[in-house]
Amino acid sequence: MVKTSKGAVLLIALVSFMLAVVIVSPLLYCLSASFMTEKELYATKLLPAALSLDNYRSALRVAPIFRFILNSTFVAIACTAAQLFTGSLAGYAFGCLEFRGRKPLFLLFLATMMIPGNAIIIANYLTMAQMKLLNSYWALILPYMTSAFCVFNMRQAYMSLPAELREAAIIDGCNSFQFFLHVGLPLTVPFLGSLGIYTFLQIWNQYLWPLLVTNSIEMRTVQIGIGMLQNSDAMAYGPVMAGTIMILIPSVLVFILGQKTLISGLTAGSVKG
């Protein structure tokens, strides 16, 4: 690296910190407002005089936020586990096995990335209605049990395993599935980790699909829950901000704990800079 002068470094650090403050400010503003009294909110104060938990209490009274969190957690974990499983299986086949039609099938899988999800969401909704699955966990989970993104990245992962490894295992009498189970899966854990975190966040943050396929309060997910809080009383921003903080905590926590894995994995195989 070329050495940058001391003054320049200081300037870069200063600009970076200012930008970081700007980026994080909406969240701090939300956190601060969630503790304010109604009076303070109307006076557009930046910080509350005391930490009042009233907004949290009334948010929990208006909407069963813990139920929403439970629903979202269950759906996000189920989808993530399913995507990692189906993605590993397909990634292994595309990355390590020889078979006729491998290339066209892989291209067919990739083609699903070209079809904008929100453009086919109405047809999927009608399918769910016909299958009488509306307002169930099945409706929330089924369409998101696999993804081209996951298959593509797992294929990269399996292609990165040395070919000799598999040859040696086969000579030792390991069949193809045993190799996948006992060697492939453990060796691709770093990829599974980053993909898992990414998928979890994607599903946790979904809006349109859960909005369409659920209609009872017990089945709603967190993001729809926020809209509910917002609609319950047009001016009650305190409880809305409190509710937002409560549903932000799980996803921000997952991000902070997993960011190293997430960032190294997401950027390792997918794009060549």
């Binding site: 993001q223 901000m241 549903i247």
Partner: peptide, 9 residues
């Protein structure tokens, strides 16, 4: 951060 969260903020 979800679009719903940042939108209400």
């Amino acid at each position: 951060i979800s679009s719903a969260c940042i939108a209400v903020i």
